[in-house]
Structures are given as C-alpha cells and as structure tokens.
Computed example of a mutant assay.
Amino acid sequence: MDLTKKARTYQFENREFTTQEIDLIAGQSGLVGISFKNCQISDSDIEKISTLKKLVNVTLENTEITDLSLKYLSKAPNLQYLFITKAMINGEGLSYFKDHKKLNTLWLVDTNLDDEGIQFLKDFKKLGIVRIDKTNVTLSGLMSIASNKKLQIVPNDKITKEHIKLFESEQQKLNKKKLEYNQVDIVECKLILNSFFTEMTNWEKYAEKIDDFTDELTNKCLAVFKTYCIDKERKGFRPMWSSYSSGPNYTYSNQKITDFEQPTKNKVLLYTKDEYLNSQYRFIILKKDNEWKIDECYYLDSGWKKNGL
C-alpha cells in the first residue's frame, strides 16, 4: 500500500509500522476512516493519527494502546465511531470525551473496563450506542450510569437482555419529568397506539401477500392513518411514500409500550421498545377537536430523531 497517495480510508492487518509510515498516515489530511487489526500500534502512534481533523471512524483491535490513546482520540473533533477490542484500557481515558460533540458509538470490548471506569459515561453529552462485552463491568456498575438517558447498551453474555430492560427502566425513571397525568387519557392513548400497531401490521401482511404497490394498497394505508393519525403532510414517510416490512418482524409487531408522560393536558408521550431490534421509540399523541390522535414517532440515537410512522 502506497501511503504517499491520497486516501479516505485505510485498513491494516497483521502489520508493523515504522515511524516514517505513521507520519505518512498522519499526513493524510483527507482521511475519514482507519482500522488497525493485530498491529503494533502504540499510544504515541495514536497521538499523531488523532491530529487528523476529518477522522470519523477508528477501529483498534488487538493493539498496544492504553487509556492514554483515549485522551489523544478525544481531540479528533469529528470522531463518531470508535471501536476498541483487546486493549489495556480501564476507562480512565474516557474522562477526556466528556464534552466531545460527535462521538456516537463506542466499543470497549475485551478490555479492563470496570465499574469505576464506566462511571465516566454518565457525563457524556452525545454518546449513544455502547458495547462492553468481555469487561469487568457488573450489573450494579451498569445501573449506576442510568442517569445518562442517551446511552444504549448492547446486551452480551454478561449483561443480558433482561439486565438491559432493568437498565432502561431505571433510565426512564431517573429522567422522567415529575408531572401530573390523567389516567383516562393515558389508557385511551395506549389503546389508540396499540390499535394502530395492529392495523399497520395487518396492512403489511396484506402488502406482503400481494407484493405490488397498487392504488388499493396505498388507500388502505391512508385509511389507517386517517383513523389513528393527525392529518398532515408527511414528506418521505408513510402513508404517501409506500413502504412495508416483511414478516415475521413487521414494523410494529415487536413494539411494546414501556412508559408514558403527559407534559400537557393535550399531549401524551408514549415510549416503546422494539424487542427484536432492541431499539427505543417515542410516540407523540395529541388531542385535537376532543380526539386523541398520533402525531409523530422518534427513535433514540444519541437523542430523539424523527422516524416517521
């Protein structure tokens, strides 16, 4: 591989590097992604590479880095995805990422991360997906960072799906606004949302059966939306932009309501989880003309992002 030629990504495996080669890599100002697997990469090498301003994606598997590399990587302003596997990291270096504005996904797999080191994740502003397979983090340590509502922990052999449910429940409890609510409204909104889930699943089963985007199929979708949703333009989303998921995992067939809020007397937020995708959603239900209808749906990914219905 010619390191003098301009590149956007590099993938290295089972390789040693000279100081000159690391300097050439660090001089690639347009580099967006880099991967080192089974390479003798050290903290001093990462210090040089972290000066790359456009770096978005970094993979470090079975290298010689320590927590010092986390300090250096935190200075890469556009870093969004950091995948670290098999490294002498205990989590102390995570403190430097506290105010990082872009980091979205973090893997610290097969490391020395423990309940003390994971505490730094509580203060992360942007971080969403976290994977901590083969670490010393316990359920107790995981529960202690539930105050950060944006964290999404990937289950593994040690931190099971049941543990994740407990963690997410604690997240919602700790971050839920202390507001009054009308029990009748909550029951009605839950009924509406569950009915919408059922009708849309039936529609997708029908769409799957005929396997053709006909006017009849579009009209059936429109009818469901007219019954359960606020009438408004939804650019790029259903019902005008026809799309459907195939079974057995239809769009809403694995959705379960997990929590609720009622910020105002005419607005209810229903939180759900897709048990197949392990994703969390928030549905906004509004009361207009004395009738509750679904307004929008958002999914959790380092904050709530519009998902469409």
Rank of each mutant, 00 (worst) to 15 (best):
L222Q: 01
A223N: 12
V224R: 00
V224D: 00
F225D: 02
F225P: 01
F225R: 02
T227C: 04
T227Q: 15
Y228Q: 10
Y228P: 03
C229K: 13
I230L: 13
D231W: 04
K232N: 07
K232S: 02
K232P: 00
K232M: 15
E233T: 11
R234C: 12
R234P: 09
K235C: 05
K235S: 11
G236P: 02
G236S: 03
G236M: 13
F237L: 10
F237G: 05
F237V: 04
R238I: 09
P239H: 01
M240L: 10
W241A: 08
W241C: 05
W241M: 09
S242D: 07
S242E: 07
S242F: 15
S243V: 09
Y244M: 06
Y244I: 07
Y244G: 09
S246H: 13
S246K: 15
S246Q: 15
S246L: 13
G247D: 00
G247F: 03
G247L: 06
G247R: 05
P248G: 00
P248D: 07
N249F: 14
N249S: 12
N249V: 12
Y250Q: 10
T251G: 11
Y252P: 05
S253V: 06
S253L: 06
S253A: 06
Q255M: 09
K256A: 12
K256P: 00
I257E: 01
I257L: 08
T258N: 03
T258F: 10
T258R: 14
D259I: 08
D259E: 09
D259N: 14
F260K: 02
E261G: 02
E261W: 06
E261K: 11
E261A: 09
Q262S: 01
Q262E: 01
Q262K: 03
P263S: 14
P263C: 07
P263G: 08
T264Y: 07
T264I: 05
K265D: 04
K265L: 13
N266G: 02
N266S: 09
N266W: 00
K267R: 15
K267L: 15
K267F: 09
K267G: 02
V268H: 01
V268M: 04
V268K: 00
L269V: 09
L269I: 10
L270A: 02
L270P: 04
L270R: 03
L270Y: 04
Y271P: 10
Y271R: 11
Y271H: 10
T272S: 12
Y276V: 12
L277H: 10
L277K: 15
L277V: 09
N278C: 06
N278S: 13
N278Y: 03
S279L: 12
Q280H: 10
Q280E: 14
Y281F: 12
R282K: 13
R282M: 11
F283G: 02
I284K: 00
I285M: 12
I285Q: 00
I285A: 03
I285N: 00
L286V: 12
K287R: 06
K287I: 11
K288G: 08
K288A: 15
D289Y: 07
D289G: 06
N290K: 07
N290T: 08
N290S: 12
E291V: 14
E291D: 08
W292D: 06
W292A: 05
I294Y: 00
I294K: 05
I294G: 01
D295N: 09
C297A: 05
C297I: 04
C297L: 06
Y298S: 02
Y299A: 01
Y299Q: 01
L300K: 08
